[in-house]
Amino acid sequence: MSMTFTIPRLETDNLILRAPEQSDFETYVAFALDPVRSAGFGTEENRSDAWRWFACNLGHWTLRGYGYFTVEEKVSGKPCGLSGIWAPEGWPEPEIGWVVYEGFEGKGIAFEAAARTREWAYTDLGFTTLTSNIVPGNIRSVALAERLGAAFEREYDNVHMGVEQLYRHPSPADLGIGAS
């Protein structure tokens, strides 16, 4: 029996969103073990925990049909971050998440990747609403969420991250996307 599942390849002006590969692991590890950079995403204690998250993300694609893409910068061909839809067991509802790796800030990468991810989720996955969970004090993520049109809805206790602020994105209709 063969098993096939699809992780699409999405494009924007400057980025490619594609399936994570083993060769992307080192760039993710560098991020995940850096407590400052990964504070809003989930810091891992060691390489083996980071590998487990990396494998878990591919499992997430298999189990849910979506997960985090590796975001690749077209001009350099390098992985520059992650963007995707995340909804493990215990999450309040599916969220759009984004991460930009060191050296790639200030280029609008997170906005471009998150907007494309959201469009894909509304158009291809058929989501009718989406959220983003942000750790209080993560000013940059709040600014990006607001730039994406998301609005603060409530604060809640996340099973993995502790207290988080839930932002709700505009609906497909608000964005003029899809049939809904």
Binding site: M3, A55, C56, N57, G59, T62, E89, G90
Partner: peptide, 19 residues
């Protein structure tokens, strides 16, 4: 472990196949 951690672990078992 709690449901979230359990999901994370099981999901990693699944994802190992892809890697």
């Amino acid at each position: 472990m709690n449901e979230h951690d359990a999901w994370h672990k099981f999901s990693a078992y699944v994802g190992q196949w892809m890697l």
